[in-house]
Simulated assay, not measured.
Amino acid sequence: MNFLIWNIRGLRSSESQQRLHAFVKENQIKVLNVLEPMIDLDQRFMTRRFCFSRVISNLSGHIWVFLAADVQAECVLDHAQFLHIKVSAPFLPTSVFCSFVYARCDYIERRDLWSSLLHVKPVLGPWLVGGDFNVVRDASECLGTRGGRLLPMEEFNTFIMDSGLIDAGFEGSSFTWTNKTIWKRLDRVMVSVDWGDYFSSIRVEHLPRTVSDHCPLLVTAPVFARGPSSFRFQRMWLRHHGFLQTVRLNWFLPCSQSGMSRLFVKLKRLKNHLKWWNRDVFGNIFDKITEAESAVRSAELVCEADPSDSNWAVLSDRNADLARVTAMEADFWKQKAACNWLEDGERNNKLFHNMVKKKRVAKRSSAYGMMGFA
């Protein structure tokens, strides 16, 4: 799926419109984000002009998002400095949350941007944040100036760390904005840490700036060609009160096979049963966390109104439930982190063994040469 993000600095001229239309056509853009168009939005004309079927705009009119016919989008939050939408399409593995940013020049006003973006951060699923942030991360992203004030950069880096976003990198020019004296990387794209669970990669290219002092950002996000998901035992299941019983009942069901065939059939049957049990009985661990926290808050309000022994006992039970599901969530993330580490470790081990093998071959050849066998 291809995105194009561009602070075009005015879309009134025919030259700007022609250049933007060419970018869209050449790169088969599905989602187009235009920043600072400096004109009123004529939805019917603009969608037809750039070959899209729909456009969404924030109330200030500084952020436009055009959508292709096979892409659906729901506006989640309309903010003065960003537009947060939920994008879905038949060719996407899941819905993608996109926050298109047009930040204020004043770093004090940007503080509201950072806090509001943290507020809309999705709990789960891919999140793309891109646009004109009007601030750099460090002095290396500037040329012709010392890099500006330190505090705005620190606040920007703190937001990136708190939000768990990762800079997607770029290809092309190192700087996205210039006034022909100073050069800065003000425009960028960042993604959530679980982006790689849904997309095979992400590529950001800084296209040549022509009619604007900002580079257009071409974002390419290839989708995995996924097969059926593999089965993996979850350690958090062991904390569920009914897990061992459901395993026991399924395992001792009658089976007509014998020997290793019997073991194979029973394991396959148990695997299918646990897939169903995980979906329909155990449920989503993150939903469980939300429900448990809500139950604790309700019990606390009841205790404040009537601090009786029975109400305190109910609150204690609710806190115990929250502690149990929190421990389940911790098990989930520990196991996920360990699996990722093992996968990386396998690749690192192969690299290490190949290096050692090459050294051994080199030493053996050298030894043979010294013995006169070369």
Rank of each mutant, 00 (worst) to 15 (best):
F352Q: 05
M153V: 02
D132M: 00
C142Y: 03
S294T: 14
L270H: 04
I166C: 13
V191Q: 01
K358Q: 14
K184V: 08
E329T: 05
R235L: 11
F175N: 04
C303L: 15
L151A: 13
K357F: 10
V55A: 14
I56W: 09
S88P: 01
G227D: 14
R48P: 00
M328P: 06
T176W: 02
L92C: 08
T210P: 00
N348P: 00
K121Q: 14
E293H: 09
E15I: 14
E291T: 05
G345P: 11
N33T: 14
E291F: 03
H241V: 05
N7Y: 01
K334W: 04
G169E: 06
K334S: 11
R54W: 09
I182F: 02
V87Y: 10
M355G: 06
W177M: 02
F66K: 04
R9Q: 14
W277R: 07
L249H: 07
F23C: 13
A330C: 06
G196T: 06
A68M: 02
G144V: 08
L342Y: 11
K357P: 00
V101H: 04
G242T: 09
A374W: 07
D40C: 05
T47I: 12
F23K: 01
K25N: 11
S116T: 13
E154W: 03
S261K: 11
V247L: 06
D112Y: 07
D132P: 01
V135D: 02
N284P: 05
M1R: 06
H62R: 13
S140E: 10
E26H: 07
N354M: 11
V191E: 02
R209H: 11
F231D: 05
P126G: 03
T94E: 15
P208Q: 01
N33M: 10
S298A: 15
N272R: 11
L150C: 13
N134R: 07
N250L: 04
P122N: 09
T158A: 10
P208M: 02
I166D: 06
V71E: 04
V87H: 06
K25S: 14
A338S: 10
R9E: 10
M1A: 08
L342K: 10
L244A: 12
L253W: 01
